[in-house]
């Protein structure tokens, strides 16, 4: 049963990959990473699930979120651009500082934009993967 190992791998690897994606996303502004890369990493986590569990369970779990997610991503990216009108103009950035105990975080609209990028890359790639891994395709149109 080689699938057993894949299933085990899925249990262990998928969360690791998703955490890795989140990590890559958060550090993106200061070190290699960012929305594009994090989106790809998260998508490969889902790909692993498709390989191990088959496409139907994954589809049941995620399919209905994908298109809204892509739309949400575009909306968030656009929103961050429009917020810039408050200061300077379209697509100019806003920044603020947040004190969390010892750590000082810098937050700004470009991070919001990056979140939009992440959502779009993730949802687009996963929707392609799901579309192409449809098992019954070609038999019953």
């Amino acid at each position: 049963m080689p699938e057993l190992y894949l299933r085990l791998l899925d249990r262990v690897l998928t969360p690791i990959l998703l955490v890795l994606a989140a990590y890559l996303f958060l550090r993106g502004h200061n070190e290699p990473g960012g929305g594009f890369i994090a989106g790809l990493a998260a998508a490969s986590a889902i790909q692993l699930q498709i390989l191990s569990l088959g496409d139907e369970p994954v589809r049941r779990r995620y399919a209905r979120f994908l298109h809204p997610m892509a739309g949400l991503g575009l909306f968030i990216a656009l929103l961050s651009a429009i917020l810039g009108i408050l200061r300077g103009g379209y697509f100019s950035s806003l920044w603020g500082k947040v004190q969390l105990g010892e750590v000082e975080l810098e937050l700004g609209t470009p991070l919001l934009f990056d979140l939009g990028v992440f959502l779009i890359v993730f949802s687009v790639i996963v929707s392609f993967l799901l579309a192409l891994s449809r098992q019954d395709e070609g038999k019953t149109p």
Binding site: G34, F113, I120
Partner: peptide, 23 residues
């Protein structure tokens, strides 16, 4: 851009309109 990774700052801040078109 308040960021140390220049590539990412270009993508999401300096040239964000391009990136928007691409996504």
């Amino acid at each position: 851009g308040h960021g140390a990774n220049v590539v990412n700052v270009i993508l999401v801040d300096f040239r964000a309109i391009d990136t928007f078109g691409e996504i």
